[in-house]
Design a binder for these strands. Structure first.
Length: 301
DNA sequence: ACTATGTCCTGCGAGC
DNA sequence: TGCTCGCAGGACATAG
């Protein structure tokens, strides 16, 4: 994971600079903690602002709603709040009727707050002009990201919902109930967004390391105790990552500092061949469900 | 009802 | 030095 070169130029000395958020979004793989951090940062910076106009890229856009639908919901709406739902960023909107703008960052998606004078980056798919004079831009080179809108007709519309359970809120019995009968590898089950929404490849590996469970194990083979440790490990690693990201929002100084998520050392992810921090055994990498999976063959059973 | 696999997309880096 | 090729991965489609 390297810093894209654009990171250097978007980093400014002033920690209050609106460029802060772009710095953050450039260096991360958006799983739950990263999306949470981006959503919080956006909430702090654009809540209360009004979307004056919307430009959507003309190429095959990464849109789930039609361009016209997105523009009609977004334009002249006030951003009430920005929050995370699973791996999605949800903008609560108000324009007489309520609505929601739902953004999924995919792998490489970024939501940047920029001044109109800032050069438009390659792969910019959407630009929202805000009443404050700033722009909110959606940039996504790999186009795995998605944009959609939800109209909420009356006051009590359901709104956007994640397909599965919120990992940070799932109680232990609920957690065990999700996994204990499944024959698929526990790693695959953790990545299944219909079970838990928000866990991605990195934190799945890290949680399994903390639980001392190998990723290839059938979910149904895990004992109650192992599932409890997995639940604990997952909560711990997600909370630590959110804390690390959150601190970078407050303490971010410049790109050299590489605060935030760089404070959180992965114990197995991306460490193939390197010694386990616990027992020094080289970390192994295998492919499960098409995804690279990292584990310690000694610590994890 | 589950589970497994292929596909999308671009930038980057390893290897020749 | 310059090129090719494989890899990265979330969500969805499709097949089993």
């Amino acid at each position: 994971m390297r810093l894209p070169e654009s990171n250097a130029q978007s980093s400014k000395r002033d920690p209050r600079s609106e460029e802060r958020i772009s710095c953050l979004t450039l260096v991360i793989m958006p799983e739950l903690p990263e999306v949470e951090t981006v959503a919080r940062g956006l909430d702090e910076n654009v809540a209360g602002d009004v979307i004056e106009s919307v430009w959507l890229g003309s190429k095959p856009e990464p849109l789930k709603s039609s361009a016209a639908e997105i523009a009609s919901v977004l334009e002249h709406s006030r951003i009430v709040r920005v929050r995370r739902v699973g791996k999605h960023i949800v903008f609560d909107l108000e324009k007489g009727a309520r609505g929601e703008w739902v953004v999924h960052l995919g792998m490489t998606g970024q939501l940047l707050i920029a001044s109109p004078s800032l050069e438009t980056a390659k792969h910019t798919h959407a630009i929202l002009k805000l009443a404050s004079g700033r722009e909110l831009r959606f940039v996504d080179p790999r186009r795995f990201g998605r944009l959609a809108v939800v109209r909420l007709e009356s006051g009590d519309g359901a709104g956007f919902a994640a397909p599965g359970n919120e990992p940070l809120e799932a109680k232990i019995d609920q957690f065990i109930g999700l996994f204990h009968h499944r024959k698929t590898p526990i790693k695959s089950a953790l990545l299944n967004q219909k079970l838990l929404s928000g866990v991605g490849n990195i934190y799945a590996d890290e949680a399994l390391f903390r639980a001392k469970v190998r990723p290839r194990r059938r979910a149904s083979s895990l004992t109650r105790g192992e599932l409890q440790k997995l639940h604990t490990g997952l909560l711990a690693v997600l909370r630590e990552a959110i804390k690390a990201g959150g601190s970078s929002i407050n303490d971010y100084v410049d790109a050299e500092g590489q605060a935030g998520f760089f404070q959180l050392k992965h114990r197995v992810y991306g460490r193939e061949g390197k010694p386990c921090f616990v027992c020094k055994t080289p970390i192994k990498r295998v492919i499960i469900a098409g995804r690279s999976s990292h584990y310690c063959p000694h610590c994890q059973k």
